[in-house]
Design a protein around this nucleic acid. Structure first.
Lengths: 197, 197
DNA sequence: TCATTTCTGTAGTGGTCGCTAAATAATGCC
DNA sequence: GGCATTATTTAGCGACCACTACAGAAATGA
């Protein structure tokens, strides 16, 4: 990681981690284009030059916020135990996380940067890559379950992974639209009925 | 609808329908905030005063584009026959529509206006309402299927409707991320396995 | 022909966008 | 204390935002 060298010069007047948390929430709630630097100033209490001095640009700030989101609020597929339980747990955790009070609804990655102006096209690639990595992770987990006999040999792991990924993405949309935790959990329950038997 | 009164005055130099189609595609691909009036000028070949004279503002133009999308590219649940076939057909049609070449990927409604700046908050309500109407339509169709005995009496129609809605929304996300028609159809197939038995 | 009506193009409006130069403030090193 | 270094504040940069006043152009009605 980065070294924290400077004991020389004027010290930072803010906690970089707390600032990044506020930035993350702003981007999470209003997206990349919907969050202006003025918004970030209001959310952090800092002025633009401090933000730029500490991070560099709105775009790297967004990427830093994305990484922080993945680290602090990201959901991971439990690698051990039956795949069915891992997926089920994954969906229920998503239902809970997407409806956590005190945080923006939905998922910062699942429904991020789906429509941007041409000038900001590049911003969308990182969230899109994260989504495809999630799909790939689910698919791999299902493939292992097939070779271990937990799933039938003919199971279409790719399609099933896309299904559970779509469920997560749809839960994010519906959470933003105001779905309750109870409703999202019910959705997760209904989705698990698609598990091959 | 609107009357076409004026035979007086200079006539329009453009086909309003063709212009609205171009506007719809621009908003569909780049979203509300990602589409500037300059973008719309380029997409339509018109100058701003013509657009404003014919429609009024960027926001009503967006709403007009949404209505056109629903009318021209919208997907409806077939009201007759078995509910299972209606839902299945609905999903496969979505898979095809979201991956139609020559049109922007994904659905203009399913993943629209999920993150906007505070000043544009109001723009999101119409797409959100359209999504909730779709969910309500699916749920009603499932309730009917329950009373007619096609589905078990204990079926949670609301949760199942949210599931199929989430599948549509997730297919839109994945189409935007580059999923092929074949992959989206496989997703639809996997989703139908959640149909209660 | 001429007045009226409506549309189009030019050329802007004030406001906000992301970003930064320059001055000032706060620290460590000598 | 003096100097180098780094951070913050003030003020403002050019570019773009959605939108529009105004003048000219193109139609109809008299």
């Amino acid at each position: 990681m980065e070294m924290r060298k400077p004991s020389r010069g004027r010290p930072r007047s803010f906690d970089e981690d707390a600032v990044l948390d506020a930035v993350m929430r702003a981007f999470w709630e209003h997206g990349y284009e919907g969050t202006s630097v003025a918004t970030l100033e209001a959310a952090t209490g800092l002025k633009a030059p401090s933000l730029y001095g500490a991070f560099g640009s709105k775009e790297v700030l967004y990427h830093a916020a994305l990484e922080r989101y993945a680290r602090e609020h990201g959901n991971v597929l439990r690698p051990d135990g039956p795949a069915r339980e891992a997926i089920s747990e994954f969906l229920y955790e998503a239902a809970d996380q997407f409806s956590e009070s005190g945080l923006p609804p939905g998922c910062m990655v699942s429904t991020a940067a789906l429509a941007l102006g041409v000038a900001q096209r590049g911003v969308a690639t990182r969230p899109a890559t994260m989504r495809s990595e999630t799909l790939a992770g689910i698919e791999q987990r299902l493939r292992t379950a097939i070779t271990e006999g937990e799933l039938p040999a003919g199971t279409d792991a790719g399609a099933l992974a896309r299904l559970f990924g779509a469920v997560i993405q749809g839960m994010s949309v519906q959470a933003i639209d105001g779905a309750t935790r109870r409703e999202l959990r019910g959705l997760a329950t209904a989705a698990m009925a698609a598990w091959p038997r």
